[in-house]
Structures are given as C-alpha cells and as structure tokens.
Design a protein around this nucleic acid. Structure first.
Lengths: 337, 337
DNA sequence: CTGAAAGCGCTAACAT
DNA sequence: ATGTTAGCGCTTTCAG
C-alpha cells in the first residue's frame, strides 16, 4: 500500500506538501502542486482514511443501523437517509444490528459507533435497558415504535392514530369483525404491535362496537409468509371475520394471499388495510389500502435532529416527535358501507 | 471521549495492560484485570476502533457496495452477505454507490474502500473504464450482469439461459408474441437487459419462431411504476401480445398491473414471467412465474472468492462464475399449451 | 509558500 | 505479569 511519504519522496517534497495538495487546506505553488499530483498518479496513491480520520477526530460518515436489510421498509429508509445526508456532504453507511441476539448491542458494535460522526438507529428488537448502555457516545437519533430513554432524540410513526384511522375506515365501510393481524395486548415492551392494537381498540370504542380480544392475532414473525398462513387459519376458524388490519404492509399483503387461499373476496367479503404504504401496495391486486406514515417527514426530521446534535452547541433537551399519518384509500377496502 | 490512557491512570496501570485486558492478547493477573475492568466501567470507556484499525492495518469489516438501497434484490443480497460473512467473524457494512453520477467512483469513494478488508461490489451503472480505475486496492469481488475487466473475480447470474428458459416456457405454453419488457438490443455496454434480450432471441430461434424486434420494449427505468405504464401502452398498441417477459420481477409485477389496467387476463390472455424470484412474487395474484437466479449460490461464491483473495496467498487467476438458473412455475403462466 | 516536529489512540516488539 | 519505546499514516502547530 503506497503511503504519503513515498509520494513525497517521489515528488521531492515533504509529506506536508503532499497533504496540502490533497486536502487543499493550504496554498501550494502550481509547479510543486503539479509534481505532487503526477507522483500521486504514477504511484496510484490514495489517502488512508483511517489515518486521516484518527487525526481529524471525525470520519465524515454517519451510520444507519437497521435490524434487517431484507425488508422493503428499511431499504426505503436507507435511500431516504442517503438522499437527505448527501446534501450535508456526508456518506451514509448501513449496518445491520445482528437483530435480537441476547446482546444486540454487544460491546463491539457499540464501539463501532465511534467510527461515525453520528448515527440514526432504527430500534426494533431493542430493550430500553440495552439502549441505556449507550452513554456519552456519538450523536444518535432513534427511530422506531418503541419506548426509549428520554435523553435520546426520537422520531416515531403515529402508530395509535394510524391504526385508529385504518380500523375506523373499515368499520365505517361496514366491517363488523376486524381482525388485527400481528396485534398484541399487554404492557411491556410498548412496541409497535401494542401501539397499533391500542389504535384498533380506540376505533372500536369510538364506534361503540365492542372489541373482541379473540380478533387479536398474535404473530411470531411479521412477514408475508407467516401472515398468509395464519390469516387463512384465522378466517377458517372464525368465518365471521369481515375485515383485516395488518399491522404492517407485509402482513397485509400476506393477509390478502391468505384470504384468497381461504376463498374470501377482497373487498366484498373482507376488507384489508395495511400500515407503511409501501410502493408495491399500489401495484398488486387488489390494490392495498394503507396508512401512510410520512416516511419522508420522519427521515427529514431525524436528519435535522442529528445535524443539530452534531453541531457545535447541541440542544440540551431531546426531542420526541410523532409523524403525521393519513389513510391512502385503494381497492382493498370498499367505497361505501 | 475517554481514552485508554485515562483508564490506565484510573486503574493505576500502564496503557499496555489495559490494552491486554481488552483485547485478551496477553495474560493479565485476575486482580489487575478486575481493577482495569472496573475503571473501564466507571469511565464508560470504549476502544477507539479507528486507532486500533490504523495500528492493526485491517478493520474486520467488509463492504457491500450496491447501486440502490431501496430495491428488494439488494436488500436480500445484503441479508445473505451478512449471514455468510458473520461466520467469518466479520461485519458487513453497506454503502450506496451514488449511482450513475458522472464520477460514480469518485476519488473519495475509492479511498473509502481502504477502510475495509474487502469489498463485494454490485456493479450496475458502472462502465468498464471506471472499474479499471480500481487498481491495487483491497480485495474485491464483483457482482452483476455487466462485462468486467478480466482481472476481477466476478459472479453473475445465468442471464441468457434464464431468459431463454422464461421465453421458451411461454412459447411452449402457447404464446406467440412475447414482449420483453425492459429489453434492449445493441452491443455496448453488454448489460443485463442486453443479455436477457439475447436469451429471448435464442428461445425464438430454437422454437423456430421469428423474433419481432418490435416486441423489445426498452425502458428508461426498470421499476414497477414505469413497467406498469409502458406495458399497458404496449398491449394497447399491439393487441396481439400474448406473453410478457419482464427482465426483472419488478418489471414483471408492473407488467401484471399494466395488463390488468388494459383489461387483459393473466395467464389466460397473456402469460407473464419475471426474473429474480423475489419472495413477494409467490404471494401476489396471480402468483408470478419467475427465473430463480440462485442468489444463495451467488453470495456463497462471492464470499468464498473474497475470502480466498483476502487470504495469505491469494489466487493468481481471477474466477468468472455464472450462476445456475431454474424456472419456478406459478400462476402467471398456463399449465398447458 | 514549504518544512520539521509532535501527536491523534492504539498495539507489536522488546524490556524488566 | 507488567512496563517502555516506537510507530501505524496522517495533519496540526510552529518555524523558516
């Protein structure tokens, strides 16, 4: 590996001059500059960013930590963050938090954070206790539907309101028994499933319809294949089900398949609403009615908060934001009651 | 930021002892060990990996460079690579190559590679000339459907054979006019679209059916929304079309939507086959027949090649592998002719 | 405008 | 079993 010293020797100058040419931090005379660049080209030199970063004390890149790579939502998230962060002249690198291991935030992965100037951390499988281990680390903004320690900036979706809207919509359009696929009751941890189940409850209360807890379909994994199987089984066991709220679009898409398997027509027999408003939902059949969580809003705010926290005088108080949500009506729900 | 020196002072030992306790490289007496760990805990110390990596000369992580985050295929790729690389005790970080900028491989992003022990590089928008700029850099394995300089290890999909299989299948099942959505004729660059169009041609030749070049639907972007619009327009303009080969599953899924928009039944009026065998394809309606490119095989080989290249005596010759492909038959094609 | 010395935080190699 | 010295490759500071 060529080093700056070798370039300096080849060009007959000091390392400092090479450094200055490459970083542009100080003026260098055109001639020496030319000699240096020529040596750089001949030796095929490239700066060692590890060394530079050690000296600088920063790296120019920010990390996005997601629980899974192979999930449409996190892919979209990454793309949005990259776009927002490019304007700041920084690079995004995405790492997968080796999801839900006993020590998800192992000592090592915690130390890795120091290699970045800041991090956006999508917390899913993380317990609050583990989050508390992150102390005087780098600037961090949390994303995700979990309860987090108050000292962190945090942006989350309007889970309760979104779920309420989704279920209200189906009840308005004539559904009586709305299954919540991937729902979950109970206190701790107050995660996404629980929050959205709360919205499901609220919609029932507001509509004056008793919420039947048997309609809460707990799921081990919130993926398409599981949802398909379990929703098909659920409607077979309870033929009265005439609406399904999937706690994510993946679950809702699986539900559509499961209902097909069970011989139910959507939206005539059963209405379906999802949550996330993934692009694919607009292009399948029937097109999926979904809750749009304002992902752009979420990312813009996360980047703004991160930028503030990385600035010279970071805010003393952490912000906790909840994104606005809206229902995007498509073919998986009926036009009228 | 706490440093190792501070920990050493707090524990009343030398920095070397702290280093030894934390890295486990040398034996340390239980008592001092305990004192050190206590100081580490009290000061909330974490090693500076930038410094450690500079000293070590390696980073323990490998990079996966993809053109886009928000694409199901690259998400799945990332997940597979992470799994395969975890066994080697290494971390994967994913970066987005700021796709198709004039200087996609800017000097800086090239330099960034040095921060990793190796890289798997999914080349899509990259010209061969740009790839040639990567010289005595770190070990690299290329992925993707493009022609690459021979000195690189390269794993690609069986594009021609896969496309041939897809189109042969539709011709066997009675299609006469098979549109290739996202196809492209011409020499340079020999990219994915071109290779798959070659397979489309081959299938026609083998079946003794003349290939009508009007059935090659070029697309600016290979995404669902574009495919939907352009396929709908294509079948409106040419009602004789009775088969669509989408060069990717995204394109095929868009084609399904476009055909629906145009009032065509799949598979009765028009058969559809995609390429990638994304998970979602098995769960939409109609279920998408697709070419499985053996993604696991691709990733396993890429990781194997990378490992070999990172080893003490790297192979002198580069390998160029083509993945086996197979047709996965589902509901978007007919059971018989 | 250019150079020499010092040091970012850590660990390999050599003491003790 | 622990400590001291030197240096990874770069840039900041201080001189010229």
């Amino acid at each position: 590996m060529t080093t700056m010293t070798e370039v300096a020797q080849a060009a007959g100058v000091s390392v400092m001059t090479v450094s200055n040419v490459l970083s542009g931090r100080r003026r260098v005379s055109p001639e020496t500059r030319k000699r240096v660049l020529q040596a750089v080209a001949e030796l095929d030199y490239q700066v060692n960013l590890t060394a530079r970063n050690l000296r600088y004390g920063r790296s120019g890149s920010i990390a996005l930590l997601v629980p899974q790579f192979d999930h449409a939502y996190f892919g979209a998230l990454g793309a949005r963050v990259a776009r927002a962060v490019a304007d700041l002249g920084r690079q995004v690198v995405v790492e997968q938090t080796t999801a839900s291991q006993e020590g998800e935030l192992s000592a090592l992965s915690l130390a890795r954070l120091h290699m970045y100037d800041g991090a956006i951390f999508s917390v899913v499988g993380l317990r609050e206790a583990e989050l508390d281990k992150i102390r005087d680390s780098i600037p961090i903004v949390l994303l995700g539907e979990r309860e987090v320690p108050a000292r962190f900036d945090h942006v989350m979706m309007g889970n309760i309101e979104g779920a309420r809207l989704a279920v209200e919509h189906m009840l308005n359009r004539g559904s009586q028994r709305v299954l919540i696929a991937g729902g979950r009751l109970g206190q701790d941890p107050l995660g996404m499933s629980r929050a959205r189940t709360l919205g499901w409850l609220t919609a029932h209360n507001e509509a004056g319809i008793p919420a039947d807890e048997n309609l809460i379909l707990r799921m081990g994994q919130l993926d398409i294949a599981h949802a398909r199987r379990e929703v098909a089984a659920a409607v077979a066991a309870d033929p009265g089900i005439d609406g399904v709220f999937g706690v994510t679009d993946d679950v809702a898409i699986g539900a559509l398949a499961g209902l097909r398997d069970a011989g139910r027509q959507v939206p005539e027999d059963v209405q379906v609403v999802g949550f996330d408003n993934l692009e694919i939902g607009a292009h399948i059949h029937p097109e999926l009615t979904s809750i749009d969580p304002s992902s752009d809003w979420i990312v813009d705010n996360a980047v703004r908060l991160l930028q503030a926290r990385m600035s010279d005088d970071p805010p003393s108080e952490a912000e906790h934001l909840v994104s606005p949500v809206r229902l995007v009506e498509r073919g998986s729900t009926r036009r009228d009651g």
